[in-house]
Simulated scan of single mutants.
Amino acid sequence: MARTALVTGGTRGIGLAISKRLKADGFKVAAGYAGNEEAAQSCAKELGIVIVKGNVGNFDDCVRAVKEVEDQLGPIDVLVNNAGITRDSMLHKMTPQQWNDVIYVNLASIFNMSRQVIEGMRERSYGRIINISSINGQKGQMGQTNYSAAKAGVIGFTKALAQESAAKGITVNAVAPGYIDTEMMSAVPQNVLDKIVAGIPVGRLGRAEEIAACVAFLAREDAAFITGATVTANGGQYFAG
């Protein structure tokens, strides 16, 4: 019987690529989204998957969203915590709102969503939780103290929950993408983009499908011996120690 996967932020960018790949690999897929109705409906129509709207930074929204998915598809076997936002600013100009928005959506969401599925995974002695971090959570980035802190926190969360869950057949891993050719990057001025690409040894931006391939591998049943790991997918731009 096909396993069920839920991908937060799963209707655009990297999340959409993950949803596509998991559907192609035979999963029953649900994709979460926050507000872009057009993209969500397009995703649902194109892939034939369930979509669920909600704010991953709000615990009660996550309770409702997971229940909706499980009512339609059954217990969640694979959770991909992909949803994220940026609110870039130098710290001396950053507002509390910019800080809190990013921490809640990018980090608190990992708890909010994982908490909904972890008990069921433990009861069934099976689960895959895959958290999307970032190269900037590994090396830091000027103008992103909020984002870098959140994405570094994702890695710490991953390592801790992996230890808690290993004996129950649950793996918990992170994927840390580098700079990926998505809608977000298209807004970067060309001169800045050229500098970014110049710093990537493979000489190009990554593709969303390449991140999806990393997630798909970690979601497999035969990836059971890999847990607490962070897969860096950044074209050689940064090697975590």
Rank of each mutant, 00 (worst) to 15 (best):
S42V: 10
D181T: 03
I132W: 01
E37D: 15
A213K: 03
N191I: 12
G178R: 00
M90N: 14
F217Q: 01
A83V: 08
G143L: 03
A223W: 04
I200R: 05
A83E: 05
M90F: 15
I85L: 13
R207C: 03
S148G: 12
K151Q: 07
R207Q: 13
M90W: 13
K168Q: 14
E68V: 14
A2E: 13
S133D: 05
E164S: 10
S134I: 05
G169K: 07
L22V: 06
F217Y: 11
I51E: 02
I76V: 15
R12C: 07
G228M: 10
L91E: 10
H92K: 14
S165P: 04
A167P: 00
A34K: 13
E221M: 04
T145C: 15
G10W: 01
T8M: 09
G35Y: 11
V105L: 06
G153C: 08
S109L: 05
T182R: 00
E209R: 02
Y147R: 07
V66A: 09
D71M: 09
I118W: 11
F239C: 10
S19C: 10
Q144M: 13
G169A: 11
R204M: 05
A40N: 07
D181I: 06
F157L: 12
D71Y: 06
R220F: 00
I76Y: 04
I103T: 09
A17S: 12
K195M: 13
A219H: 03
G137Y: 02
G203R: 04
G140F: 08
E221R: 07
M94Y: 13
N234C: 14
K45I: 13
L91H: 13
I155E: 01
G57F: 01
A176S: 15
V105K: 00
Q41N: 15
W99G: 02
T158E: 12
I85A: 08
E37W: 11
A152D: 06
N173Y: 05
K139T: 12
A5M: 07
N106P: 05
D61T: 09
Q138A: 14
N234E: 07
G140D: 09
Q163T: 11
T182M: 01
V66M: 10
Q138H: 10
